[in-house]
Simulated assay, not measured.
Amino acid sequence: MNIFVAGSLWVAGAACVGGLIAYLVRRFGRDDEGRPGNNDAAGQVFTIVGGLHAVLVAFVLISLYDSVSTVSQTAQSEADSLVAASWAADALPEATKDRVHQLAAAYARTVEEQEWPRLADGGEVPATGASQLDQMRQAVAEAPADDDWLLDRKTEASNQLWSVYQARQQRLAHSGAGGVGAVVWFALILGSLITAILLPNLFGGTRLAAHIVIVSTLAGTITLLLFAIYQLQNPFSGGVSVPPEAFTSALARLV
């Protein structure tokens, strides 16, 4: 299902549920016009609880968004370093150059076709990519360097492969981060119910229609934020998933 359709359905459903609860509270409560006497106390509690919940939601959203941005930058850095290592190997002996080019293209293809789907579904990443990277390192390390130029190119290729390894480890670490933990989800959901359903129904004085609109809007808005958090949990899947375009471009330059 399209992410915009799914999000709209969740928001509309939450708004309807919130409005229904608000109607039932007013319709079958002791006071048809709400509880005006609660407004001062309920307002103070709502300000504190709502503020704390807003801080938690904002912290989680910003953290997840930063994670998505970091994964995108890390993937681009990994792909660029892979291409740079292959280019640096052009100055090495023919056998080493061909070997590094072959392994670099195979590594980019492995990341795009094998690793990325596993990162998206949370499965175990195969060791093929790590093995190919290690073979590139060995090929460069064993290459003879008879002059300063070759030694410089060999060192550059080794440094770029080390950058590939570092970026790879960061990418895999973000996959295993697990998104939002169970405790945080518990706090988010319970806080949302208190903020969107419980506390607004303690206020009184407004007309029934206005009260239903207020509670529905609040419930829908908070649900929208929770839906965004859910979609941002895994930077390799969901509505804002990072595609393997960096490795697609790298592969085009390597073959």
Score class of each variant (00 low, 15 high):
1 M>P: 03
4 F>V: 14
5 V>S: 07
5 V>I: 13
6 A>Y: 04
8 S>P: 05
12 A>V: 07
13 G>Q: 08
16 C>Y: 10
17 V>M: 13
18 G>H: 13
20 L>N: 03
22 A>N: 06
23 Y>S: 06
28 F>R: 07
28 F>L: 08
29 G>N: 08
31 D>I: 08
33 E>S: 12
33 E>R: 12
34 G>R: 11
36 P>Q: 12
41 A>F: 15
41 A>H: 15
42 A>H: 14
44 Q>H: 10
45 V>M: 14
47 T>L: 15
51 G>E: 07
51 G>M: 07
53 H>C: 03
53 H>G: 06
54 A>H: 10
56 L>D: 05
57 V>E: 02
62 I>R: 00
62 I>S: 00
63 S>M: 10
64 L>N: 02
66 D>F: 10
70 T>W: 01
71 V>L: 01
73 Q>H: 09
80 D>C: 00
83 V>F: 00
85 A>F: 06
86 S>M: 10
86 S>H: 07
90 D>Q: 06
96 T>G: 14
96 T>R: 11
96 T>Y: 13
98 D>V: 10
98 D>E: 14
100 V>A: 06
101 H>V: 07
102 Q>N: 15
104 A>C: 10
107 Y>H: 05
108 A>M: 15
112 E>A: 13
112 E>C: 08
114 Q>L: 10
116 W>I: 06
117 P>G: 00
118 R>S: 02
118 R>N: 01
119 L>Y: 11
125 V>N: 08
131 S>T: 13
131 S>N: 09
131 S>Q: 12
134 D>M: 15
138 Q>A: 15
141 A>P: 04
145 A>I: 09
149 W>Q: 15
154 K>I: 12
155 T>A: 15
164 V>M: 03
166 Q>K: 10
166 Q>W: 08
166 Q>F: 13
168 R>N: 07
169 Q>R: 06
170 Q>H: 00
176 G>Y: 06
177 A>N: 01
177 A>L: 00
178 G>L: 05
180 V>W: 01
183 V>G: 00
188 L>E: 04
189 I>Y: 04
191 G>C: 00
196 A>T: 05
197 I>D: 10
199 L>R: 09
199 L>E: 11
200 P>V: 04
205 G>F: 07
206 T>M: 13
207 R>T: 15
209 A>G: 05
214 I>R: 11
214 I>S: 04
216 S>K: 14
219 A>E: 05
220 G>Y: 03
221 T>D: 01
228 A>T: 13
228 A>H: 10
230 Y>F: 05
231 Q>E: 09
231 Q>V: 01
238 G>K: 02
240 V>H: 02
246 A>Q: 09
247 F>E: 06
247 F>R: 07
249 S>T: 14
250 A>G: 04
255 V>S: 14
